[in-house]
Design a protein around this nucleic acid. Sequence first.
DNA 1: ACTCGATATTGACAAACATCGATGCAGGCG
DNA 2: CGCCTGCATCGATGTTTGTCAATATCGAGT
Lengths: 119, 119
Amino acid sequence: MPQLIATLRDTTAADGDACCGTLTTDDAMGREQAEATAQLLKAVADPVRLQLLSLIRSSKGHEACVCDLTPAVGLSQPTVSHHLKVLTEAGLLTRERRGTWAWFQLVPARLDDLAAIFR
Amino acid sequence: MPQLIATLRDTTAADGDACCGTLTTDDAMGREQAEATAQLLKAVADPVRLQLLSLIRSSKGHEACVCDLTPAVGLSQPTVSHHLKVLTEAGLLTRERRGTWAWFQLVPARLDDLAAIFR
DNA sequence: ACTCGATATTGACAAACATCGATGCAGGCG
DNA sequence: CGCCTGCATCGATGTTTGTCAATATCGAGT
């Protein structure tokens, strides 16, 4: 679970003084955590993938199959499949084969992770 | 203000039936909205920029200058300047010159926009 | 087994991006 | 004025990424 931006300490600024050396790097996000959080954000920082998430979310059962999603976003089938793979690998979707079709379902807990990043 | 993912209707799925044509594209995010939201998310979908936001947030007054941020992230000064520009153009930071130094401050309302995207 | 429809994978290509060195520009200070 | 320091911009480069056409795979039905 990628953690959020560090704890907020409401220290009212007493600025106007010197500049460099006033920074406390201890409470801030570390590099690995920033890397993990950025990777999750990259998965949703794309208009097509946002549309896909929104489409699935507005569907009954919070799931949809590729044959419905492809015409809805107006891109080629391989492209849609690629975006769904990215979202799945990010943990935001689960894939399930039902007969000939592949159904994708939201992972609410992972969406909560996203919402938690910025409080 | 980039809107959030469409309204959630908790219709419990009655699946098992046919597939294609069951999708309601009306409640879902439009392309332009998805584009705008993705642009905001792209600004924060980078480990360095997440670190910068976190560093500024953990500073007093929620502001910091480049001379402090540059050594904290361990990258060249032009690179840090570029990332700060991206964050500023996304509306997440404001720039203010105080003497020789440039101070960057958080824009809380814009962070709220981010938090609102995923509810 | 063969065929067909739905989805996944591969390869290729262009656009976008992160990074740095070099340079330009502003603001204090001698 | 001229220098120096902090920051921004420019140009170049290597990497990532979104997209599609072509192809492979998988499952169902004949």
